[in-house]
Simulated scan of single mutants.
Amino acid sequence: MTDLVMRTLDANSAHLFHTMPDPLALAEKHRRTTFRPEWQRIALRDGRTVARAAWWGRAEDTEPLLINWLDVAEGEEAAGAELLRTAPWRPDELDLDLPGGWRDDAGLRAAAETRAAAARLAGYAPLVERFLYRWTPDRGLPERPGRLVFTPEPDDAVFLDLLRRIHSVTLDAHARRAIAQGGVEQAAQEELDIFHWMPSPRSWWQIARTRAGDPVGIHIPARNPSGPCVGFIGVVPEHRGHGYAYDLLAECTHFLAAEGAEFIAAATDRSNFPMAAHFTKAGYPVVRERVNFWADGAVSAG
């Protein structure tokens, strides 16, 4: 087998990134994503592109935040791993996005396994599988149960306290990873940092309370760099078991629709069966799936 040639692209060579087949429809998935050519790399063998990867960050970031496009030709897992290992950036996170129902299609399953093998060889371990959702106005607005009162709250300390309570008992794999590393305080702070990271207004954040005034949870209508999204839904442990997460999701959907959202993206862990059921009830179809990988040294939970 001939030697590999690794190439980091630039504005003049960016077109070379698209010289591979796209069985996982990643070009469609990332049609709203802006990639910097200089954060894209390809691996060539005999002049043929056998692996490609794109690192992503916001316009103001000086280093990429994650890898969210990885393609590897069949039998070239080692080339894909080398492409990642020799890059000048080493973000903790790698996302492998897949078409919905990929396990039921032999070709898609093989393509996914090839890319996952390359990620593992490069030192990334799977953390969690997630469902990716997309609500559109033709789905209709979910009914508001009317059980809760929603209000904004300007004090971050109030949100941080509720996040501590929410993450004290959680099914979320990312929160569990943070708890394993630094306790509930780290998980809550990381969540709050993500809320601030999003470019949507701080005034959108809302707390849900019972009509008697008891805090039930929070919902974060948001925009990420690709558009409107459900930033967070969380219910404190003492109020679980009543389906309140659906109330929060319905309110979040109504809020973003009133802001003119033409779509709303959302996600939850595949293993979070209650939340997945709420998304289905609220009219959010699964449009993609994701396997989230973390660098081996960063993975310490479920």
Rank of each mutant, 00 (worst) to 15 (best):
K281Q: 15
W197Q: 15
Y244W: 12
P21K: 06
L249C: 09
C229F: 10
D161M: 09
G297M: 00
G217N: 12
P199D: 12
G231W: 15
V158R: 10
L160F: 12
A266L: 04
L127P: 04
A87M: 04
E93M: 11
G57K: 07
P285I: 07
F232E: 13
E129N: 13
E191M: 09
A266M: 07
N292T: 09
Q40Y: 01
E76K: 12
S203V: 11
F131T: 01
V287D: 08
I264C: 11
G217Y: 12
V236A: 11
R139P: 01
E60R: 10
P237C: 11
A81K: 13
T49L: 06
V236E: 08
N68T: 10
Y246H: 14
H18G: 12
R209L: 08
I166W: 00
Q186G: 00
F279Y: 15
L148N: 01
G283P: 06
P64L: 09
N224F: 11
G100C: 04
A14R: 15
A265R: 14
G243C: 11
G182M: 11
M275K: 05
A175E: 00
T136K: 15
T49P: 14
P285G: 11
L4Q: 07
D95W: 00
E74A: 15
R223L: 13
L163S: 10
G227A: 09
A157H: 10
G123K: 03
T136P: 06
A298T: 01
W135M: 12
S271K: 14
A43I: 03
A59M: 04
D104H: 08
T114Q: 13
R36N: 10
T136W: 02
D193V: 02
E143K: 13
R103Y: 05
L44W: 02
T268D: 07
R139Y: 00
P152Q: 07
L248M: 07
A106F: 05
E77R: 14
D247Y: 08
R177C: 03
D156H: 09
H278D: 10
A117R: 11
F279P: 10
V287L: 07
L24V: 14
R90C: 05
P154A: 04
A122N: 05
A276Y: 04
R147I: 01
P88Y: 00
R120K: 09
P201Q: 11
Q186S: 03
I218A: 14
A53D: 04
H254K: 05
E76F: 13
R7E: 15
I218N: 05
D104F: 01
G47Y: 02
N68E: 15
D71Y: 06
K281C: 10
E251L: 03
A125K: 04
Q206M: 12
N68W: 06
L83E: 07
P37S: 05
D61S: 08
H278W: 03
F263G: 08
L24I: 14
S168C: 06
R31I: 10
P64I: 08
L70Y: 04
R7F: 11
I179W: 01
D46I: 03
P126T: 04
A265P: 00
G241S: 06
